[in-house]
Amino acid sequence: MSRPQDPHRPFFPFGNPFRMILPKGSYLSPRLLALLNAFEETLAERLRKLKPKDKDEVLSLSWMKLAMELLCETHNDIKTLITDLELPVCDWDEKWIDVYLDNSVKLLDICIALSSEISRLNQGHLLLQCVLRNLDSTSPTQFVRAQSSLDGWRQHISSRNPRVENCCAILESLIESLNLPKVKNSAKGKVLMRAMYGVKVGTVFVCSVFAAAFTGSAKKLTDLSVPDTLLWAETFTELQTNVNGEIRNIFSSGRGTVLKELEAVDVSVKKLCPMIQEGVDPVEAEGLQNLRSDLGRRADKLSEGLDLLTKGVDSFFQIVLTGRDALLCNLRASNTVFDPVNVDEQAVR
């Protein structure tokens, strides 16, 4: 796997996975080929929509919300493909099931970690509201309280969330599983595994961007190299190069905060602090109120963005959980052999 000290090296340690999934000489019927092409073309279009129009979109909450929405749509696409393939669970190879169940647990863990960080960031909104209330007055006592709340906010925002830090290890294990089990004597299985590969690549990319944003570390970014024979390969490579490159530029600039809306709030806070500490005379009172209004607008925009992103992550969690539950129900109904103890323990983590 990619070494932490060498984040720019493309990750592709296992060779071309499609030597296993679609080996030379494999035949797909026109119907199966049409299903696969439709899936990959849709995936390419979703990735194309995610390409930022300009660098300011990268690590904005609106872009992250869009990324999560497209991820949800892609995971729904794989459910539709499974139905269209008419490939019942009883015909699934046991290794496919193991990979699916294991990956779904990892994705649920990532969702929980991301949700906890979004919630933590949103808690800072309460401190900003205290600042705004205390700035309604120009009394020295209120200024002291406002300064205390500002200090609390900055300390809160700069703290680290261990759950998000652990996302890196989970992502690394997901990358290792990109090397899918070999498919024998099943054209439908080959289509399914190739489609799942695309879903996993997109998922790892988005989750690694979120992990980098929330940890403040470019080392959490992942550079994946995919076979150029895939219909979505060129679009994905351009997207990954564009987004990861800009994120690394943001980190190298030494900014204390990298989320765009959070950075905007921090700019307002830095302008307010000196004025509050030095006191405000009547001439400066209007300037203080302008800064207060500016902080209020930016704080509300940050809170609204975090709320929308929370809904996106929750939706993704539900899609993964629903798909996992459906598979488990089908397994029980078909008496397919799997490890129920391990599955049940992981599902409730």
Rank of each mutant, 00 (worst) to 15 (best):
Val243Lys: 06
Met64Lys: 03
Asp344Met: 10
Val206Gln: 01
Ser253His: 12
Pro17Ser: 10
Leu231Cys: 07
Glu117Ile: 00
Leu66Trp: 02
Leu87Asn: 03
Ser149Pro: 02
Val131Trp: 04
Asn330Arg: 13
Ile319Cys: 01
Gly296Phe: 02
Leu43Val: 11
Asp300His: 13
Phe251Asn: 05
Val265Lys: 00
Gly245Phe: 08
Phe143Trp: 03
Leu132Gln: 06
Ile276Glu: 00
His125Glu: 14
Asn330Phe: 08
Gln289Trp: 11
Val131Phe: 02
Pro282Lys: 09
Leu224Cys: 08
Glu40Gln: 15
Glu86Pro: 03
Ala169Gln: 12
Gln129Tyr: 01
Lys260Thr: 13
Asp77Asn: 09
Ile157Met: 15
Val265Gly: 00
Leu121Ile: 05
Glu94Met: 12
Asp228Tyr: 12
Pro7Arg: 03
Thr336Phe: 04
Pro162Gln: 03
Arg297Pro: 01
Glu345Gly: 02
Val341Met: 06
Gln142Ile: 01
Glu176Met: 08
Leu178Met: 09
Leu43Asn: 06
Val99Pro: 01
Leu85Gln: 08
Ile175Asn: 04
Leu231Tyr: 11
Lys184Trp: 13
Gly305Thr: 09
Asn16Leu: 12
Ala113Lys: 00
Cys207Gly: 01
Leu224Gly: 08
Gln142Trp: 04
Cys72Thr: 14
Leu66His: 05
Leu22Gln: 06
Ala326Pro: 02
Pro10Trp: 03
Ile97Asp: 04
Leu178Arg: 04
Val131Tyr: 05
Gln123Phe: 08
Glu57Gly: 04
Val58Glu: 00
Pro340Lys: 06
Leu174Ile: 08
Ala285Arg: 12
Val131Met: 08
Asn161Glu: 06
Leu239Ala: 07
Leu180Ile: 03
Asn290Val: 13
Asp281Tyr: 07
Glu73Asn: 07
Ser137Asp: 14
Ile97Cys: 04
Arg145Asn: 10
Leu192Gln: 08
Leu61His: 03
Met193Leu: 12
Asp294Glu: 15
Pro181Ser: 09
Asn179Lys: 13
Thr322Ile: 08
Leu309Pro: 02
